[in-house]
Write a protein that binds this DNA or RNA. Structure first.
Length: 423
RNA sequence: GUGGGCGUAGCUCAAUGGCAGAGCGCUACACUGUGGAUGUAGAUGUUGUGGGUUCGACCCCCAUCGCCCACCCCA
């Protein structure tokens, strides 16, 4: 035997049972997206590196994108995220589209990172964006979509939460404590992001090292520990009021430590996590004003988020929210008793198929017990048996593997018999 | 890119320098026109790879490849 060629690091094989989960998730995302009036779209999987150059986080582009030369020598990127593509698609037809746009997508992305729990190199992402409105209510809609998705897959508010903040609020708060330069503010944003990952004393030391005065550090901690801080932001006040009206407040929390890594967010930012802080963020998003302009269009505000399939699947598994997927390929197995009866069985299977059932008919010569065992293992509930006796009488034996019952009926009564058992 | 852990049957894992094993799964039979259960029997390994130490290596050492986990970053 030849040695099996290994798959590419960080990719996943979707065997039928995995594919069933992916399709189930896709269907849920479609349901939620469409219930809010969003339309599905898709972009190319390959893009030029320039598309990401100024917009995404620097590390994302320089270190984590899959980039390779094509046969003509041009540098090609496997898309690491969708938002720049979306911005380009909007910019290209900026004056033909009807705003606000509500668009969603579910497709593959690639990042050249070391795989670990909840992270692969090839993954699927749900992207959903509202483009062309600037209202806090629009931002709230996206948060509500997340919450509605959680509700739909039966993740409870005690299990997952969506944490919301506003970069403008943080900007003004930092301004108040004398952090005025862009460079220092950026540094402080990174600091805030890391606070939960470090020991408090280490974090204090690190903050001072990063250029904060002792007074600024004390004030910063006051800001970050103030759960009522959102009341000082008229926008966040409206966001939370809208979320209340949308009936999803139970999932939503204010958190001044949410900053998000992508550089293009300008206002509201949010992420969802497992409430016992396990694993990485389930999804992340926010409001971005400059992206369409950055790819050559006119300025256009937008808000959106992305959810990866890897982390959400871990969370759904953890909380028992995945249905049991027994990917039964068919409703009924039509057995072939012996080669001479093969065409008779094929005829029966064809007519059953026309009635709208999923029918599998044996094409291999094998013994009846083997065919029954096959049906059992594949989760096919009903079996039709036509041996010489039934054939001579114009009948067929129908067997219900789940209920351990069978009866011999005229061929035309196969479906009525099965429907009766199903009822 | 940095740090840690692990590679033994199809799968999950034992075997602490002395004959490579178990459970599950698989195959056959009991049951030659009936699946899940039960019983009996059977098959399967260059112990990831290459070196080294040793009378002797799954075990110790070195290298290498692969996987997992954490950091970084992020979905």
């Amino acid at each position: 035997m030849e040695k099996i060629v290994a798959s590419i690091k960080g990719t996943r094989d979707f065997y039928p049972e995995d594919m069933a989960v992916r399709s189930w998730l896709y269907a849920k995302l479609r349901e939620v997206s469409e219930s809010f009036g969003y339309q599905e779209y898709e972009g190319p999987f390959l893009e030029k590196i320039e598309l990401y150059a100024a917009k995404s986080g620097e590390e994302l582009v320089k270190e984590q994108a899959f980039v390779f030369p094509d046969r003509g020598g041009d540098l090609i990127t496997l898309r690491p995220e969708l938002t720049p593509t979306l911005a380009r698609m909007v910019a290209q037809r900026q004056h033909q589209l009807t705003y606000p746009l509500r668009w969603w997508s579910f497709g593959p992305f690639w990042r050249y990172e070391r795989p670990q729990k909840g992270r692969t190199r090839e993954f699927f992402q749900w992207n959903i964006d509202l483009i062309g409105t600037n209202s806090p209510e629009g931002d709230a809609e996206l948060v509500a979509i997340c919450a509605t998705f959680f509700k739909d897959v039966e993740l409870k508010p005690e299990q997952v939460g969506i944490f919301v903040n506003d970069r403008r609020l943080m900007d003004s708060q930092l301004m108040k404590i004398g952090i005025t330069s862009d460079a220092l503010r950026k540094t402080v944003f990174k600091l805030i992001d890391r606070r939960d990952k470090m020991h408090p004393t280490e974090w204090d030391a690190f903050s001072i090292e990063s250029g904060l005065t002792l007074a600024q550090l004390t004030n910063l901690k006051k800001i970050l520990d103030n759960r009522e801080l959102w009341k000082e932001s008229p926008e966040l006040t409206r966001v939370f009021a809208a979320l209340d009206s949308l009936g999803v407040s139970a999932y939503v929390h204010f958190d001044p430590q949410i900053i998000r890594g992508l550089d293009y967010y300008t206002a509201t930012v949010f992420e969802a996590r497992d409430l016992d802080r396990e694993g990485r963020a389930i999804l992340g998003g926010g409001h971005y004003d400059n992206l369409v302009e950055a790819v050559g269009g006119d300025p256009l505000p937008a808000v959106g988020f992305a959810m990866g399939d890897v982390m959400i699947r871990l969370v759904l598994e953890k909380y028992g929210c995945l249905p049991e997927f027994k990917p039964a390929p068919a409703d009924i197995l039509v057995t072939v008793f012996e080669p001479s009866l093969s065409n008779h069985s094929l005829k029966i299977s064809s007519s059953l198929r026309e009635a709208g059932f999923k029918i599998l008919c044996f094409t291999e010569e094998s013994k009846l017990p083997k065919q029954l065992k096959f049906a059992d293992k594949m989760g096919i509930r009903f079996v039709v048996i036509v041996g010489p006796d039934e054939f001579a009488a114009g009948k067929a034996t129908v067997k219900d593997l789940a209920a351990h019952q069978q009866s011999t009926v005229p061929v035309s009564d196969i479906l009525p018999a099965i429907r009766q058992w199903l009822a």
